[in-house]
């Protein structure tokens, strides 16, 4: 499509981006507000950022969430890459339809259902096996299950683009399949695996509902702390926390895209 941008498209874009960004911009703006009242401007201040550093509940929640997100992403990237291999390279094996369904359904499954069903499983397992104890480990299992779906989508679309003749050539030259994967396939798909890892990390770090269901006593993640604080009303400390988060995520997305863009160019 070419030619001048019609006025209709311009106004739609302006309105659309205003809608997407004005809540975020106003949130960032009021994080530097002197006043406790989030919406009355009383002068520039960074005191809420300072207060954040002394908020032990939020800090320990953040530490727990970082650990969970790291473990989740690492498990999901292994499971998701294996699942992507199975779906793209193994042809029509028995039980493929069920497998493909189980891989994609978690992408859209409402979180309350995933959370409730996993909690019921963990309670049943605890009754029969005496394991797992609910807490960090059960949250990681729950998060890895839905994050695997996202990793699979990202990796399999890359795997589908790879020219298979490279792998076939290596096989013809006598390389064992494991070596082919290690020397040819993995170097080609690692950017997708990294993207999947980051996506899994972000999804886990952000999740409230599934973590609340599957957590045990004492394990309160950052979103759980934020949620209980937001329920009490808006607070400038949450604005400060949100601002830090938005800045980190935005710079990561920009850097990742620059890298990907340069590789392609």
């Amino acid at each position: 499509m070419n030619g001048r941008l019609p006025w209709f498209a311009i106004s739609v874009l302006v309105l659309g981006y205003l809608f997407l960004y004005s809540p975020i911009v106003s949130l960032i703006f009021y994080s530097f507000n002197e006043s406790r009242l989030v919406t009355v401007w009383a002068g520039f201040s960074t005191k809420w950022y300072g207060a954040l550093m002394h908020n032990d509940a939020l800090l320990s929640g953040a530490w727990l969430s970082l650990q969970i997100a790291f473990l989740t992403a690492s498990v999901a990237v292994v499971l998701g890459t294996l699942a992507a291999f199975a779906l793209i390279r193994f042809g029509n094996f028995r039980g493929r339809t069920l497998f493909a369904g189980m891989v994609t359904a978690p992408l859209v499954m409402p979180e309350v259902i995933t959370g409730l069903s996993l909690l019921l499983l963990f309670v049943a397992m605890e009754g029969v096996l005496g394991w797992p104890e609910r807490g960090m480990m059960t949250i990681v299992i729950a998060h890895a299950t839905f994050a695997t779906a996202y990793v699979t989508v990202v990796v399999q679309s890359r795997l589908g683009q790879i020219d298979m003749s490279l792998e076939e050539a290596a096989m013809d030259l006598g390389a064992r399949p494991f070596k082919v994967v290690r020397v040819i396939t993995l170097p080609l798909i690692w950017p997708a695996m990294l993207a999947g890892w980051l996506l899994a990390f972000t999804l886990s770090f952000d999740d409230l509902v599934i973590a609340t269901f599957t957590s045990g006593p004492g394990a309160k993640t950052l979103p759980m702390e934020v949620f209980s604080s937001v329920r009490m009303g808006v607070s400038p400390q949450i604005n400060a926390l949100a601002t830090i988060f938005i800045v980190v995520v935005t710079s990561m997305v920009v850097i990742a895209n620059q890298v990907a863009f340069r590789r392609r160019a």
């Binding site: 981006y17 106003s26 009021y30 604005n239 949100a242 995520v249 997305v253």
Partner: peptide, 20 residues
């Protein structure tokens, strides 16, 4: 990019921004 950034940003934070 401006569409992708909110996609990566916390869901909870964006709802919180909507309250304000």
């Amino acid at each position: 990019m401006l569409i992708i950034i909110p996609f990566w940003t916390s869901f909870l934070i964006r709802i919180y921004a909507m309250i304000g």
